[in-house]
Design a protein around this nucleic acid. Structure first.
Length: 504
RNA sequence: GGCGCUAUGGUGUAGUUGGUUAACACGCCGCCCUCUCAAGGCGGAGAUCACGGGUUCGAGCCCCGUUAGCGCUGCCA
């Protein structure tokens, strides 16, 4: 039978980077073995599920380039099948009706409640099989149900024995039945519960390998019990280590904000391939030391055996804007930006410039050559796509801001620049042809003539032309900015010096 | 409370059957290059392999215990 895997997120918020990685690993595995990758939206929690969230999941997968092979399955559509499944287990005797009135519990005290009940149960000597309805006769159970008494359906877990499965990542897993409660399959309002729905859907979808977060590792035993009760063959399982925050706590939107949301990376200028590459290396390692890998290489090298067992820390600093996300992710993005084929990068830059209202159609037409040259020049030191419209704004617009530190360091320190720069502009006016080399020759000659260091003029010019203190080789900048714009910018400094003089 | 999982420099990882100075990437520091900043090149700091026992001629790798972190334990998913 061919391999079939699925990514099954619940649409209760943005797409978490941990979920995104789960999707990636499933996809990689499917592609590696020539199997199929399916998407199932687990929207059975009507209270929390939103359409916006479903959209964000779909968009997120698309952004990462993870295509799915069949129609999306919405779990809520299978509601009736799940209910019937539970009833079938009731019929076969594998499950029983529990007429205990439902106890309302709020999300906030769940963990606490669990511990308290566990302690109370231990004190009273009761266990998971102490439910008084467990041994209720079939007739009595039927009678009460027909009388309209509400009931939940619970799986009747045997008293003796253990479940066992081979996890592709964590190895042999065993669990005593003693540790497993008679889990609820169907709520008293007829609503099927997670463990049941997952199993039924996975069976129906023909899932052969379940690859998911480690938070499901211990619950897997319950699901295996359901597979057995249903007389179905359980799939293979592979659980993935979790992704943690720097303080090793769970990475959550509430506590850690937008760093955990995949869309943040799209919106803040990540190249999808870079982020995907970074994600792939979080918890998995190839059998080579090569880390920058194309999707094809990732697919070719991927194996469940390469997945580690320890949780991974996603390293970022909330207080440092330069380290708003993992430094390695940022590095990898920069690496992609400066080395990927321009043909692949260009559309992303176009989208970014469009978004910043800096795009001109000429860049793909008459000015294509200029655009290409400019991008090649500036992409070498950019970290995100955003840099093209922010640090790189001066290349595409006359309306750009000056970095305050740059102005101080390169312009205000030397008042003579008030005369030097316009004079430089006059010299450059005669340069022919206008190239990096001729500009360099002219500038150096003028520096000597004026008796100043070339560096002074170079740095000042950089700030005048780009608003920045840092950037590419200045002569290359002259060339791409062009003669007209360069001269105009060199001559546009008077007002500042007026300010400086006023202050003095 | 119970059960489970995990534990290699700041972070991500390698370290396949135990065998010389624990490897790679990011980050950090320095030097070179240089008009700045990156990139690149060279070099460096940083790990008593969580801790304690054991097995062994020899353990990051095997065994036991401890601790810590995380997960599950719900008529949430």
């Amino acid at each position: 039978m061919s391999i079939r895997v699925r990514f099954a997120p619940s649409p209760t918020g943005y797409l978490h980077i941990g979920s995104a990685r789960t999707a990636l690993f499933n996809w990689l595995y499917a592609r590696h073995v020539g199997g199929r990758f399916l998407l199932r939206i687990e929207d059975t929690d009507v209270q929390r599920s939103t359409e916006a969230s479903t959209r964000s999941i779909i968009e997120g997968l698309e952004w990462l380039g993870l295509d799915y092979d069949e129609e999306i399955i919405f779990q809520s559509d299978n509601f009736e099948k799940h209910r019937l499944g539970a009833l079938r287990l009731l019929e076969s005797g594998a499950a029983y009706r529990d007429f205990t009135p439902k106890q309302e519990r709020t999300d906030s005290n769940v963990k606490q409640g669990i511990a308290e009940r566990a302690r109370a149960a231990a004190a009273e000597g009761t266990d998971h099989r102490s439910n008084p309805f467990r041994e209720l006769s079939r007739e009595e159970s039927e009678r009460r149900a027909e009388a309209g008494e509400p009931f939940a359906v619970r799986l009747k877990v045997a008293r003796e024995g253990q479940t066992r499965f081979e996890d592709a990542v964590y190895g042999t897993q065993e669990r005593d039945y003693r540790e497993i409660e008679d889990l609820v399959l169907l709520r008293s309002d007829g609503h099927p519960l997670y463990n049941l729905s997952v199993v039924l859907d996975d069976i129906e979808m023909g899932i052969t390998d379940v690859i998911r977060g480690q938070d499901h590792l211990t619950n897997t035993h319950k699901q295996i019990l359901i597979y057995e009760a249903l007389g179905a063959q359980a799939p293979r399982f592979a659980h993935l280590p979790l992704i943690l925050a720097p303080n090793k706590s769970k990475l959550s939107k509430r506590k850690h904000g937008e760093v955990v949301s995949l869309t943040t990376y799209r919106d803040r200028g990540f190249v999808p391939a870079a982020f995907r590459n970074f994600l792939a290396l979080l918890g998995w390692s190839p059998d080579t030391e090569q880390e920058i890998m194309t999707l094809e290489e990732l697919t070719a090298k991927f194996s469940l055996g390469g997945i580690g067992r320890a949780n991974a820390v996603f390293n970022f600093s909330e207080s440092d804007p330069r380290q708003w996300t993992d430094a390695k992710a940022l590095w990898m993005n920069a690496e992609y930006i400066r080395t990927m084929p321009l043909a692949e990068l260009a559309p992303m830059i176009k989208a970014e410039l469009r978004h910043a209202k800096l795009w001109r159609d000429e860049y793909e037409d008459d000015e294509r050559e200029w655009f290409t040259k400019t991008v090649e020049l500036i992409r070498q030191r950019f970290f995100t796509l955003k840099d093209f419209s922010e640090q790189g704004r001066a290349y595409f617009s006359e309306d750009f801001d000056f970095d305050e530190a740059a102005r101080k360091k390169n312009l205000h320190k030397e008042l003579r620049l008030k005369e030097l720069l316009p004079a430089l502009a006059r010299k450059l006016e005669e340069v022919e042809p206008w190239t990096a080399d001729t500009c360099e020759a002219a500038l150096r000659a003028y520096a000597e003539e004026a008796g100043v260091k070339a560096g002074l003029l170079i740095n000042a010019a950089r700030t005048m032309l780009t608003g920045q203190a840092v950037g590419p080789s200045m002569f290359e900048v002259f060339e791409v900015i062009g003669r007209d714009r360069s001269l105009r910018r060199l001559r546009s400094m008077e007002p500042w010096f007026q300010d400086e003089l006023d202050k003095a």
